[in-house]
Design a protein around this nucleic acid. Sequence first.
DNA 1: AGACTGAATGCAACCGTTTGCCAAAAATTG
DNA 2: CAATTTTTGGCAAACGGTTGCATTCAGTCT
Lengths: 345, 345
Amino acid sequence: MPKSSQLRPDRPATINDVAERSGVAASTVSRALSNPGRVSQHTRLRIEQAAAELNYVPSSQARALSSGKTGAVALLVPDITNPFYFGIIRGTQLQLKAAGYTQLLVDTEESEDVEASALESLRRTADGVILAAARLDDEALVQAARHTPLVTINRSVPGIPTVHIDTPGAIGQALNHLVSLGHTTVAYVSGPATSWSNARRWTAFNDDAKGLGIKVIRIGPFAPKTTSGAAAADATVHSGATACVVFNDLIAIGMLQRLRERGIRVPDELSIVGCDDIFGADFCNPPLTTLTSPIEQAGRVATTMLLERIKAPLSASFRKLASLPTHLTIRNSTGTAPTPAKTKD
Amino acid sequence: MPKSSQLRPDRPATINDVAERSGVAASTVSRALSNPGRVSQHTRLRIEQAAAELNYVPSSQARALSSGKTGAVALLVPDITNPFYFGIIRGTQLQLKAAGYTQLLVDTEESEDVEASALESLRRTADGVILAAARLDDEALVQAARHTPLVTINRSVPGIPTVHIDTPGAIGQALNHLVSLGHTTVAYVSGPATSWSNARRWTAFNDDAKGLGIKVIRIGPFAPKTTSGAAAADATVHSGATACVVFNDLIAIGMLQRLRERGIRVPDELSIVGCDDIFGADFCNPPLTTLTSPIEQAGRVATTMLLERIKAPLSASFRKLASLPTHLTIRNSTGTAPTPAKTKD
DNA sequence: AGACTGAATGCAACCGTTTGCCAAAAATTG
DNA sequence: CAATTTTTGGCAAACGGTTGCATTCAGTCT
C-alpha cells in the first residue's frame, strides 16, 4: 500500500526521512544521490526507491550552505520592459533549465547603484551572474568578477568573458544599402550615453560613413524607449538628413509613429534603419529595415560560457569572447533618397 | 585606516566576523539586525558599524535553513516570449523588489508537467508562488496551495486568491462597438483549448452576442502566437463573418499580417478586435482596436496579495479576489461593415 | 536590605546537506 | 589462509544563520 501521502504530516521529506526509510545513514543517501559511483548498486536502488516514494526533493538552501553551490544563476537586465531583453531572458532561461539551474531575474532599472548592490548580494545567492548591458564601470566589474563568475553581454571588460552581438560589424551593410539608394547625408540617432553598445555603434557608423564619403550627423542621446521616438524624429527631420540609422528598434518604432502623425512619409521622405530586429519590427508601419541580432542565441551562448566556467573554475582554457554576427534585414522603411525639391542652398 | 579590504581574505563576511569585531555573541548580532528592539541601543550601534565596515550581507540560504523564509517569490509563466507576460513579469518584479524579495522566474512552456514539478521543487525555494495562467487542474492547484502560498492570475480556483483581468466584462463593449458599425455576423477566434481565459472570453462573447441578436461563429482553437494568425485569418475570412474578436493581440497581429499579404483590407473588408493591448498593438498596421488590460497592475496586485498572505499566514481576512477592469481602445482595425456586394444566397 | 522584575546578552541546539576521515566488510593477492 | 587492497557505509563536523532558554546585572518594590 502506498502510504506516501500518509507519511507526510506536513513538511517535505528530508534526507533523514529517506535514510530512515531505506535503513542507511543520511550521508549514504547524500552520496547515492549526488555521487552514485560511491555506493553499491544495491543500496543505491533502495535509496532511490525510498526517495521516490517519499517524493524527496533536496533542499537547495541546505545544499548551498554546505557545498557553496546554489544552483541558481542571476540575470541582470537594465530594463525589463525592453523587448530586446526578452530574447536574452528567454535564451538564458532555456539553457539554464536544461542544465538544471534556476534563473534569478533582476531588473537594475538602468541604475549603477542597483546593479552594484545586486552584484554584491547575489554573491551568496547565485553561482554566477549574466550581465546584460552592464552600466557599471570596468573596475567595479573586474572587482565583482573576482568573487563571482561573470559573463557580460554587449559589454566588454578586460578579463571578463563576453558575448558580443556584432551590430557594429553590420553597420557598413546598412550604410551601403543607404548609399546605393542615393542617400548622401545620414544621421545616427544615439541611444543612452552610458551604453557601451551605443558607443560602439556610433564609432562604426562614423568610420564606415567616412569610408563611403557620406556626410554624417549625430543626434541624441535618447532613452531606449518608443516614447523617445517623437523627439528623435523631429530632430532627425530638422537635421536635413535623408536617412538615419537608429540606435535601436524601440526608438525607431517611436520615430515611425511620430513621422506618421506629422504626415512625413517613410521611406519617401526619410529612410530609417533600426538595430536589433525586436518583436514588432516586422509588423510596424512600415515594417522596419533593421540590423537583425541573434538575441536569444546571445542568451544561450552567455549561459553556456558561464556554466562552463562555473563547472571548471580553474581551467584557463575558456572562451573569453563570442561574437555573434548580425545582418541587414531590408523591409520597407528604407527607400530611394528624395530628389531635392527645394533645399536651402 | 580602513582595513575593510585587508580583512577580506576571500570570502564574504559572516555573522561571526561581525560578532567578533564588535565583541558580542553571534546571536546578539542576529538580533540586532533583525529585531532591533531586542538589544540595547549602544550595542546595536556598535554592531551596525562593524557590519557596515565588514560589508556584511546575511546569507539568505542560511537564513532560509533556520527560519524557513527564503525571501524569494517565484513567478510561473506559460510562455516567456509572449509580450503579455512581460507586463506581469515587470509588475511583480517591481513590487517584489520594493518589499525586499527576490524574483524567481520560471517558464513552464505551456506544460502541465513542468508546472507541477516546478511547484513541487519551489516548495523549499520560494516563500510563495504567483501563477500566471495556470494550466494545471484545480485539484493539483489546491493541493499545492496547501503547502505554498499561492496567487493565480487569470485563473480562478476555489480557495485560492486570484487576480482577475476582467476582459470578459468588456467584451460587451467590443460587441456594441461592432454592432454600431453595422456588423451582424461576428466571429470569435479562440485561443488555446486549455486556457481558462479563453473559455471565459468565449462564454462572455457568446452571451453578449445573443443579447444583441447577432450571429456568432467560433473559430479555432489557435496557439497564442503571431504565427497562428495566418490560419486564423484564413478561417475567419472563409467563415463569412465581417468582424471578429480575437483571443489575444498576438494572434490578431498575425492575422493582420496575413490579411495584408492576401490583399484583404482591414477594416474595410474585415474588422478585428484584439484582447490585452500588448506592446505592438498600437503600432501595427493598422493599429489594433483592442480590449486594454492593466497587465502590469495585475502583476503588482498579485504580488501584494501574496506578500500579505506570506506575512500573516493565519489571518482569514484576505482579499481572495481582485478583479481589474478592462476597456475598449478603439484604433483603426475596426470600421463599418462592408455592404454585401454579392453573397452566396 | 532582601526578594523580585525585567532588560540585555550569551549558550547551544537546530535547520538539511555535504564531505573528510575512519572502520568494517569484501575482494584480491601471494 | 593470512596479508593487503578496495569497496562500502557511518560518524561527526562544518556551512551561517535563528531562537528558546538560561544567565547576569541593574533597578524596583515592600
